[in-house]
């Protein structure tokens, strides 16, 4: 292959990677808020399944994608409320309640699909914007300007969430609640309220991530559509060290690696496909293991806050 052919290939892989990283960004940024406040929400996968179904259903039955997306976010918020109630108010073990939420969302989505749709159906899905002129720009045109509106929203979410977390009073409260909840409480910050807000916000973004998969990527709903992407999003929060731009890097690295492995497989180079398929996952783990920077894990992560606890 000539150099220009490799360049064209790189452009194709990057273009796809930008689009497929969007759901990871939504879900992982959401999970980041939740974890920053001290709540590990392992239910992301289940919330995404439910969000994917709700968005698909309204896009399919009522041909209203926007309504579907909004309701997916709303349903995600309700799931977050449930998670917050169980893990903040009732102080349940977060690992267990999150897994419970995952199974609940997964099961409910599958059941509703069976009841209200009943089989594989497809929709036309969210269209790409294809900004005229910009798409034709050399090299970066397709990479940057050939996507649907949600992709831009996902990439916009990265700086916005960074600003909110590090430059606003509310962000300061979130970080305080997630690291030293007792001190935050002493300063008059309502720990319970902040954690509710963060878990609900995170779950709304998970609902949006699920909606992306069904109405902007697959353009259909099927049993187990999310297929582990919710758990990948949680891993990306650790990879990104609870920082929005770190998460963006992780999501892009994972998506580019995935695009590369798909091309590598079909390029016909004799190589065991099992190794190729797991390459993106191994890459994420290796990069995570080799980076020596101190972990920025919120110190109160997974620890329910008990006001009455005397130490």
């Amino acid at each position: 292959m000539a150099v220009s052919a490799y360049l064209q290939l790189a452009i194709r892989i990057l273009t796809v990677a930008v689009a497929v990283s969007a759901p990871y960004i939504f879900a992982a940024i959401g999970e980041m808020f939740s974890q920053k406040s001290g709540v590990l929400n392992l239910g992301v996968e289940g919330i995404m399944m439910l969000g994917a179904f709700v968005a698909f259903y309204f896009a399919w039955a009522h041909e209203n994608i926007l309504l579907g997306i909004i309701l997916a976010i709303f349903v995600g918020g309700l799931m977050g409320l449930l998670m917050a109630f169980v893990s903040v108010t009732l102080k349940a073990k977060q690992g267990i309640s999150g897994i419970g939420l995952f199974m609940f969302g997964w099961g409910v989505a599958g059941t509703l699909f069976r009841l209200f749709v009943g089989g594989v159906q497809s929709i036309s899905g969210l269209q790409d914007l294809n900004v005229s002129g910009l798409t034709d720009l050399p090299y970066i045109g397709r990479i940057l300007f050939s996507h649907n509106i949600l992709v831009y929203l996902a990439f916009l979410l990265v700086p916005v969430s960074w600003y909110v977390l590090y430059k606003t009073p509310w962000g300061l409260k979130v970080r305080a609640v997630g690291s030293t909840p007792r001190a935050a409480d002493t300063m008059g910050i309502n720990v319970t309220k902040i954690r509710y807000q963060c878990v609900i916000l995170g779950s709304m973004l998970a609902g949006l991530a699920g909606a992306y998969l069904s109405v902007a990527q697959a353009n259909m709903f099927a049993s187990d559509l999310v297929a582990g992407r919710g758990f990948i999003a949680i891993a990306l929060v650790y990879f990104g060290r609870w920082k929005p731009f770190g998460i963006l890097k992780g999501a892009m690295l994972f998506s580019v690696a995935n695009g590369f492995q798909r091309w590598f497989q079909i390029s016909g180079i004799a190589f065991p496909y099992e190794v190729t398929v797991v390459f993106p996952y191994v890459l994420i783990i290796v990069v995570l293991a080799l980076s020596h920077k101190k972990f920025a894990e919120p110190t109160a992560l997974t620890v329910p806050y008990d006001r009455e606890f005397k130490g």
Binding site: V16, Q217, A218, A222, R229, N258, R262, Q265, I266
Partner: peptide, 21 residues
Amino acid sequence: RVGYTGSFGDTVAAREMAETQ
């Protein structure tokens, strides 16, 4: 050209592989 997803039920991955093809 043959590409595997490593899964039986990953609809999205199967779509991505088809798009790559």
